[in-house]
Design a protein around this nucleic acid. Sequence first.
DNA 1: TCACGCATGTAGCAAGTGCTACAGGAAGCC
DNA 2: GGCTTCCTGTAGCACTTGCTACATGCGTGA
Lengths: 185, 185
Amino acid sequence: MNKRDELTEAATDYALAHGLIGLSLRPLAAELGTSDRMLIYHFGSKDELVAAVLEASNDRSKAVIHAMQPSASLRAAVLDLWATYTEGQVQRCQRMYVEAAALGLFGREPYATSIRASNAVWMAAMATHLERSGVAAADAPRLAGLIDATFNGVLLDRPLDDEAESRQIVEDLATALGRSQRGSE
Amino acid sequence: MNKRDELTEAATDYALAHGLIGLSLRPLAAELGTSDRMLIYHFGSKDELVAAVLEASNDRSKAVIHAMQPSASLRAAVLDLWATYTEGQVQRCQRMYVEAAALGLFGREPYATSIRASNAVWMAAMATHLERSGVAAADAPRLAGLIDATFNGVLLDRPLDDEAESRQIVEDLATALGRSQRGSE
DNA sequence: TCACGCATGTAGCAAGTGCTACAGGAAGCC
DNA sequence: GGCTTCCTGTAGCACTTGCTACATGCGTGA
């Protein structure tokens, strides 16, 4: 494995654990057993390192969602997606996505560009799962957008609470979408 | 008006325009016609300044939502709330809320505490509007939670796009909730 | 008049930031 | 052996960060 790829994976672990917003090269390098000097050497700049980390994180969560079994209904799909979303590894990735999105709110690079790419990939993965669970292909992307937005919003609003309140919101969404789908058939 | 309050309002304007994440005292002070020295003097620390700014921003958006007229239905309420949410002044406040929430994701103070307070106030204001629009008092808080989460998620995922896609998601939510409500009566 | 407290300017500190200059070790090729 | 190329350690630069020490003007009350 390429040295740069090794560093990317290790740096991704570190960023997932410590957050993206205050990320700085020296503590990161120390934990990786190297120096800021080498990180710059291998990545060219901090921005490129961050972009690589975001891509790696996105790959990880995408792999998990692709491994899901189809769900029995739209309602079940929302709940299953939420279960996946809140599973430890994926949730850490999503938390980092939220940080990157916040950093990109004012268009700052490389965050704005990275989150665009991440979002497209992630939403496509969600849409695929919805289709495999019986949702019409025409509706899947729009529904994926709604579901993803709600999930991220829940993660944002309730960072440290226990899951009960979050779960309630997701169930309300699942119920509303389930009813709405049957009502429109 | 108290000097500290004056500074708080001006600092809030600055933070709304430039973002909260990279906020630093010297550029802020320069724009305010004072010095970092004086900001620390009046607020005690940067953290207290940030807390004051977040509270001021929250007060502003709360005032706007309280001034809304009741909506004709749940569906209309969602769309009206979205219209308010995306109105320039309020959207800037929400964008800052999202930044604060991201900063608080790992429990960092003063952000974690501030966003808890902001969120409680904002959700109560949304719930009140839903009630005034005919939603049962028992359902209003839960619905407010769902709607708020979705709005924030949309803001996060689509920071720089034109509004079409965002609008689509919100309409899907409004439709689903409207149908769901009628279906459950 | 004098003293006191509030407000403010100047200068600076210690720490941390991304990044670079320079030198050298190690490995492979001629 | 010499030469090049990849990698890495040491040291440092220029800059920014939140915050502080110190002195000074100001108005007010005794």
